[in-house]
Design a protein around this nucleic acid. Structure first.
Lengths: 267, 267
DNA sequence: CGGGTGCTTGATACACTTCAACCCGCGTGG
DNA sequence: CCACGCGGGTTGAAGTGTATCAAGCACCCG
């Protein structure tokens, strides 16, 4: 009963994009014109190949903050490349517990969970007004079989997701609260950098509760860890605005096995 | 420094199968003759298609208990279908902490982590004498582009791995010790069933420490949870031999939110 | 300017870890 | 044949990190 407030604001059914009428929301996608190429599916493709992609990635879809891009159980038809915005994916257990399984930003691919069972196994929710390129999966496979580079790159994208999941498992399985948060911040920072944004200063799109859910912590613990980082001078926090002041210190938190002594923070 | 005793028995380099001479260890694979088809890559392919696979899956490789199938960092060249035996995959952090990221059994595919960076991101170790079918990846992609069913099935296999990882995250992020162990046992039971073995009685191939590592727990906690399950009459434990006596009780542990929530207003 | 959601902070509770002792089964070798 | 050692497992007692409960604050939005 704690989460999903923002989500349930909008009437259910209204946000299931599959039935959204194709008004202004649908735009021509055009990978060939997209400045996210180097982060997205077209990576490594030639000019000519990217132009063939244009025919495949035919529509864009806008998803407002709080709306679902897809929900658990809906038939799988397409994967989505994030054109702009920010998403989270989460999984809901029968008993009501849920967990955020990832945060996705521009240039990243959403929806590959749905391939195996032909229906989605998680929810994807926009954390800010966003826009995605719709990539019908059957057509992607068709084109893949004609374009080996595309096929290969798609395999890499899926594999990257598997590798990412491994490191989340590592995080959840072996790290303590502050290490988790440091890893989280460093990961965000690195991804923002790759998109040309500042590595040291950014805005969190998610709440403390969502961060906690992702990191396997309670929101209070996340908040305390933020406060502690600020006390130590590692970062400056103002609500959702983060400034990293001591990148090295955050990194040291991860590698330096901090177990032996309770707080021997001497260098 | 607690683990990997069994592994380090064998001199390093000696167990890197890529350089193992093709003696009796290499056998013709022949998917068409394999009784694991229905669990493995060929699933859903026609007779004729499976015969085309035979040309691709050309060799088998034996991996002795404790030996590595591959190690972190080695160049990625092939994925592996487990013909017989049992494996674990694990990831090692710089500071020495490690985590088991999965256990794999006959019919399952290993090595897809390597696609994205063209080198492996985890170790795969046999927990008993095992045998795998070597599937050279370049050839798999080649054949996939000619056989849409194979391509599609391979995508499903990769996606299934992503979905599996989601539920491990769920386990690590939201469950308490006994729930994790219950989930683990139920998962094993279900996979053994799918292979025609008893759902209720099986032999654990891994140590308590490896289970703990996978579940994000210490081996003592795993041991205590086993003991508790035995006291409660859910299972019978004799070392690594497990008999499930009350499947429903184990399942109830997972769905029944076990927190005695003092003030859960409704429900 | 009020109301509410999100965030912070403190006090207490508890689940799991840590440390330690001990046991068991098994292979080895005297 | 039994002593011995050893890895793997169990169990107990104490320690600690995070959750829980609770109160109050800060910002955003209407």
């Amino acid at each position: 009963m704690t989460q999903i407030k923002r989500v349930s604001e909008c009437p259910p059914g209204d946000d299931l994009g599959n039935v959204v009428p194709l008004t202004a929301h649908s735009l021509k996608a055009a990978c060939s014109q997209c400045n996210l190429q180097e982060l997205c599916l077209p990576l490594g493709l030639s000019e000519a190949e990217i132009q063939r992609l244009d025919s495949l990635v035919s529509t864009r879809r806008k998803v407002k903050r709080g709306q679902h891009l897809y929900r658990t159980g809906v038939p799988f038809e397409a994967i989505y490349a994030i054109k702009a915005g920010f998403f989270k994916t989460d999984v809901l257990m029968e008993d009501g517990r849920d967990q955020v399984t990832g945060f996705q930003m521009a240039g990243e691919i959403l929806g590959m969970d749905g391939i195996s069972l032909e229906s989605h196994t998680c929810n994807a929710v926009a954390l800010e007004d966003s826009e995605v390129c719709v990539i019908p999966f059957a057509q992607l496979e068709q084109l893949s079989s004609e374009m080996r580079t595309l096929q290969h790159h798609f395999h890499k994208v899926m594999s990257r997701e598997i590798v990412r999941d491994q490191s989340v498992m590592m995080l959840l399985g072996t790290m303590r609260a502050e290490e988790r948060l440091a890893a989280f911040l460093l990961n965000l920072s690195q991804r923002f950098t790759a998109r040309g944004y500042s590595a040291a200063e950014f805005h969190l799109r998610m709440t403390r509760e969502e961060i906690g859910s992702y990191l396997g912590l309670k929101l209070e613990t996340v908040s305390r860890a933020f406060s502690r980082f600020q006390e130590e001078g590692f970062i400056a926090v103002q609500q959702k605005h983060i400034r990293i002041l001591d990148l090295a210190a955050l990194k040291a938190l991860l590698t330096h096995t901090p177990l032996p002594t309770p707080h021997s923070s001497h260098g």
